[in-house]
Computed example of a mutant assay.
Amino acid sequence: MPKVYIFLDALDECTQRSELLDVLEAVAGWQLQNLHLLMTSRKEQDIESSLKGYVDEGDTGCLQSDVVDKDIQRYVQQRLSDDKSLIR
């Protein structure tokens, strides 16, 4: 059976968040071995509470903003030094 991967980015930006969380809970209840979900979101209490019911703690990760900010800063500095059209 083929594996199915679904990527959902920025759950916290969904305007119909409650409905989305209900759908995700229903999909998780199907317990399909070939279905894999990857979801991203800012830390929001309602999202964390909802996912806690069917996502194992070991299957979660947190990108701390200070780590991400440093990566973004390095990237911007590198682009500014490499691309002379950005000199201004």
Rank of each mutant, 00 (worst) to 15 (best):
Y54N: 08
R42A: 04
W30A: 07
F7G: 09
M39E: 02
V68A: 15
Q16K: 13
V55H: 07
C14Q: 02
I72Q: 01
V76Y: 09
L11P: 00
Q31I: 00
Q77Y: 10
A10F: 02
Q77N: 15
A26L: 11
M1A: 14
M1N: 11
I87E: 13
L21K: 02
K84H: 09
T15L: 12
M39P: 01
V27E: 06
R88L: 07
W30V: 02
H36E: 07
Y5S: 08
K84T: 11
V67F: 14
K70E: 15
M1Q: 08
K3I: 05
T15D: 12
G53Y: 10
L21C: 03
L20W: 07
T40E: 03
L51F: 09
A10I: 03
E48D: 13
P2H: 10
E48P: 00
E19Y: 08
R74Q: 15
W30G: 00
Q31Y: 02
E19N: 10
F7N: 10
R88T: 07
G61S: 14
Y5F: 15
L24N: 01
S81C: 10
L11I: 05
G61P: 00
L80T: 06
S65L: 13
D83F: 04
K3N: 13
N34S: 14
T40S: 14
S81T: 15
K70D: 15
R42W: 03
V55L: 14
V4K: 09
D71K: 05
S50A: 15
A28G: 13
R42K: 06
A28P: 00
A10N: 08
K52P: 00
Q73R: 12
V4Q: 08
R79D: 06
K70I: 06
Q77H: 12
Y75P: 01
Q73K: 12
S65F: 10
Q77C: 12
S41E: 03
Q16C: 09
Q16G: 08
C62M: 10
C14E: 03
E25W: 06
S81Q: 15
L63N: 05
I47S: 03
L86A: 07
G58F: 07
N34M: 06
V23P: 01
Q73M: 13
V76H: 05
R79A: 11
T60L: 08
E19Q: 13
Q78V: 08
A10P: 01
R17Q: 14
E44P: 00
S85G: 05
D82C: 09
D9Y: 04
A26K: 14
L35E: 03
L86V: 03
Y5Q: 10
L37W: 05
E19L: 09
I6Y: 04
S65Q: 11
